[in-house]
Design a protein around this nucleic acid. Structure first.
Lengths: 209, 209
DNA sequence: ATAGACTATAAGACTTTACATATATACTTA
DNA sequence: TAAGTATATATGTAAAGTCTTATAGTCTAT
């Protein structure tokens, strides 16, 4: 259950309420990690039970009180121990590949429809990454101008590296996915989606490995 | 719940027992879809309740009886309807990216350890794909020699296309992942893992998009 | 001889994730 | 004025998937 660690990680940046964490999730790691609101509140309660976080009530006049969570030293220790561990293996589960596995039942038009829909989704995803990059750069320019050239600016730039690494992953994987889909679409149009053509391509790819 | 459709798809190839299906899963689609043994038996029961599959008991002397499942016409219709639908969006959830998001807390050695472990996993995965390719080609040569040049050979080659498409996806995504990790490892070694270097790389990638 | 792996099915408990709903107030838009 | 969106937390429930154990015989290797 990595959600615990995601939340602990966020709380090393600054104190958050559950509501804040949900928004932060959606704005920063959504492209590789999503979290349900209900799960966040329940996980915060669990983390508090284990004394990895604590909270103080912040009263508000017009809105419900906020519970502002802070990470404890035990929480930091737990997080740092997890960070250096090799990442757990991911179980890929892709409905698209399942469909394509049965391409022989799909026929030309069906295949095109499935591929085109997926291609549109991947391209939208890539466009989103482009937007994220622009917004990061925009924020960065602003913040660095305010902070000047001191340790604070250094710290800010170090924190940026992680998010940029994950973004790079998203773009690279997205591009690879898109290129694969384009190749399929093209082969399908040209009636070149045969076992021998696929085997030839695989050899080209694998020899490179 | 795509497991239903995966099973229906397999049953269009030939009748299977639950045990067979589990093995078939592990030998053919494991790299993009895994299924728990208990889940398979339960799903088969569900599919039968919905009359999408039926079974006959096959008695065995030395081993427990097998329940040999066959897809029904209703099952075929259900499968074919699902196949042409756009694939459901996948929720990516990658613990590795979560760790790297907090690179600033990780330090040089910690980062190297995490990246190296992942690199080893990806390279093992690619080697496995290579093995799968070889075994497919080996089987193919054998089967085609037996079948000669008729409709049966045509049919066999058509069924092969789907699996080869998914394998191509695995190799391409694997290679992209590996290259991304290698870039990270190299940058990390050279102390070039800075926000400006990452931004420059992202621009190179995104301009290509 | 004994431990482990293979064939074959199945139930039980548990975890994780998702979806819906509840409460309560303020602000905006049609 | 009604509907929708935003802030803020929380519970109930269902679906999907994992892990464990049970039964029962065969075969292989140490």
């Amino acid at each position: 259950m990595s959600l615990r660690y995601a939340i602990l990680g966020f709380l090393t940046i600054r104190p958050f309420s559950g509501y804040d964490i949900k928004r932060y999730f959606d704005n920063s790691v959504r492209h590789f990690w999503s979290a349900d609101q209900a799960a966040i509140y329940r996980t915060l309660a669990d983390l508090e039970k284990d004394q990895l976080v604590g909270h103080e009530r912040v009263e508000q006049q017009t809105r419900p009180d906020r519970k502002l969570y802070r990470i404890t030293p035990a929480g930091v220790a737990e997080l740092d121990a997890w960070l250096v561990l090799p990442a757990a293996a991911v179980v890929r589960r892709e409905p698209l590949l399942l469909k394509l596995f049965f391409t022989n039942r799909l026929g030309g038009e069906g295949l095109s429809a499935v591929i085109d829909a997926e291609l549109a989704a991947v391209e939208a995803q890539l466009a989103e990454y482009k937007g994220i990059l622009e917004s990061i750069e925009h924020d960065r320019a602003e913040v660095l101008q305010q902070l000047g050239d001191g340790d604070a600016a250094e710290g800010y730039r170090k924190v940026l590296v992680g998010p940029l690494i994950t973004l790079t992953n998203g773009v690279r994987i997205g591009v690879a996915y898109r290129d694969w889909l384009r190749g399929l679409a093209q082969a399908s149009e040209q009636g070149a989606l045969t076992d021998s053509a696929m085997l030839a391509e695989l050899h080209r790819l694998v020899d490179d490995v």
